[in-house]
Amino acid sequence: MSTPESLDDLDARLISLLTTRPQIGVLGASRELGVARGTVQARLDRLLRRGVISSLAPTVDPHALGYPVTAFCTLAIRQQSGHEDLLEHLRGIPEVLEVHTITGDGDLMVRVVARDNPDLQRVIDLVVSTGIVTRTSTVIALAELMARRTEPLVQAAAQS
């Protein structure tokens, strides 16, 4: 990701529009925003290049795919082991959605999904099967009260 640059009002409006109506396309966005199609395309290219947006791909809901259980696993790993071996292993597990290094009692936070609780046990068993993980703690999400959101952050960045 490149050096942070500020967003302007048009960037914020474009991101908001694509977030709420991702199917709109460049031409539709230009009409909706009242700017030239080339301006929208240039803004999208710049936002992609800067890493502000990562893609124009659809957002997939694991629940709708048959994976209604979400859990967060804190993993402690052998310190002499590199993260790369474990990361490569985790990339091979389709139910692993995110992996973050963390501070605190563990080394990694892993978000996983499963079809049900017995399937969650299968996923956790896969996650820890390498011998690199020394300890794990898992919490199951009961309900999503607020989905991942970025629009308030985009608006704040455009105003600063």
Rank of each mutant, 00 (worst) to 15 (best):
R37T: 08
G34T: 05
L75T: 03
T134Q: 04
V99I: 02
L120T: 04
R21H: 15
C73P: 07
S129F: 08
H83G: 14
S55R: 01
R135G: 00
Q121K: 14
M109R: 09
Q121L: 02
P152F: 13
T103D: 11
V40Y: 09
D107L: 00
A147Q: 14
V69C: 07
G38E: 12
S129W: 10
I124N: 07
D61W: 01
A42I: 02
R149I: 06
L18Y: 15
V154N: 05
L86T: 02
L108S: 01
R46H: 12
A71G: 01
L86K: 03
L56C: 09
Y67L: 13
P4M: 08
S81I: 07
T136M: 08
V128M: 05
S30W: 09
V113T: 03
S54M: 13
H63G: 04
I77Q: 08
G104C: 02
V40P: 12
L10K: 03
V123R: 02
D125H: 11
R91M: 02
G66V: 04
I15R: 08
R21S: 14
T136I: 04
V112P: 03
A64S: 15
R135P: 00
L90H: 02
I132Q: 04
L142V: 14
V110F: 13
H89G: 03
M109N: 10
L86C: 05
T134C: 03
R111C: 11
A29S: 15
P118S: 05
A158F: 07
D9Y: 08
G92Y: 06
V35F: 10
V35Y: 11
